[in-house]
Design a protein around this nucleic acid. Structure first.
Lengths: 209, 209
DNA sequence: TAGATTGTTAATCGATTAACAATC
DNA sequence: TAGATTGTTAATCGATTAACAATC
């Protein structure tokens, strides 16, 4: 199940798009082509999540969306804190605003006085001192780190201490966190350097998220 | 070699940090701990790239930085175009500005008149119509897509037609490109949904870039 | 020398793919 | 029915890890 979660998120997005276009059913090879993987992998994922299709019609789009949502969305929704209200932080806030109802950036934090105590795309920005208090008050369990590299590790430490158990890290440093805290690193420099390298090789391999 | 490129980029960043701290040598297990992998994997990577250490001192930090740079940097530098000068685009421009001398965002493009014909963190922003002309003039080979999902596929098509062979895609849609074009997707929604999911499981697995 | 680390092969692990009987 | 697709097992593939002789 672990490895599948990322793909489920991708499937759901593709399926939502199909649903909007009033497409009721999809075959494994259709979904595979759109997701950039093989039909066998799609069928295996369906098996893993216990979802069945029909050999004549394929998979029901809306049912599958609901099935995936039941697995990956928290029924009551989850609140996220964002640390660092720079360009990247603001991009993330506006990107998530109204995007995934079950997953909301509930509070943003910054060390810069000029960026706080106001509302950015529907999200309240607070001074960094209030991090622990607001995480606790609001019952926030996950956080996004969008601060400079030098500040990231200390923010991570504070987040973990305040009870956060999942971190999405955009700072270009691998975070040191206890083993029970899940971290996902989005390393933009690495991604860019990979692209630069493979641009020079005429390579065929497609990247993944 | 393919899989290693991402890790080489990470190693180099860690090594640069060590170099600044005047640390001349590093053992595989030191580097492994900082990179979040095993010592065996580090030694294997060193073998793959043909770099030797000494059993008494470990690997020479500065030599290794140079060795990695020789492999992954283009000797003459590479120019990158960025499409979409929103919050995310601006974050990327300022992040890369002066960051990697061999890898520069040379030109930015946007459809919005208000965002173009000016300089953002040292990068000139042009109207989208001039995309093909400037890619050609400047000899740009790679591009970053930071536009809304709906516009991404058409931008990708134009980039490929203009001769770009590597794309870093931040739009939440898998791009359809010819097999000789390398694409790397950074899927923020997927990453966030993974974090949200694994935050609920008390899972130990650490994510990767 | 004794002790630790490197370099490298072999074993392990896990994910992806191929194949095909069951199904519509 | 004939034809295509699903569901699932077995085979393949590739990357990671363990192990250990060679080395400093």
């Amino acid at each position: 199940m672990e490895i599948t979660v990322g793909r489920l998120s991708l499937y759901r997005r593709i399926l939502n798009e199909l649903s909007l276009r009033k497409i009721a059913h999809v075959y494994s090879h259709n979904l595979a082509a759109k997701a950039g993987i093989t039909a066998a992998a799609v069928r295996r994922d369906m098996m893993v999540i216990g979802f069945s299709g029909s050999p004549s019609k394929g998979y029901n789009v809306d049912d599958l969306v609901r099935h995936i949502s039941g697995l990956i969305d928290h029924p009551d929704g989850q609140k996220i804190a964002l640390i660092g209200v720079g360009n990247l932080g603001r991009a993330l806030i506006s990107f998530f605003h109204g995007h995934r109802p079950k997953l909301t950036i509930e509070a943003a934090f910054d060390i810069d006085e000029g960026k706080v105590n106001r509302v950015v795309s529907g999200c309240r920005a607070y001074p960094l001192e209030r991090l622990e208090a607001i995480i606790d008050e609001q019952g926030i369990t996950a956080a996004v780190i969008a601060v400079p590299a030098a500040a990231a590790q200390d923010i991570a430490r504070r987040l973990v201490k305040a009870g956060v158990t999942g971190i999405l890290n955009f700072a270009p440093v691998p975070l040191q966190v206890p083993p029970d805290v899940y971290t996902e690193d989005i390393d933009i420099t690495m991604a860019m350097e990979k692209v630069a390298y493979f641009t020079r090789q005429h390579h065929t391999k497609r990247g993944e998220a």
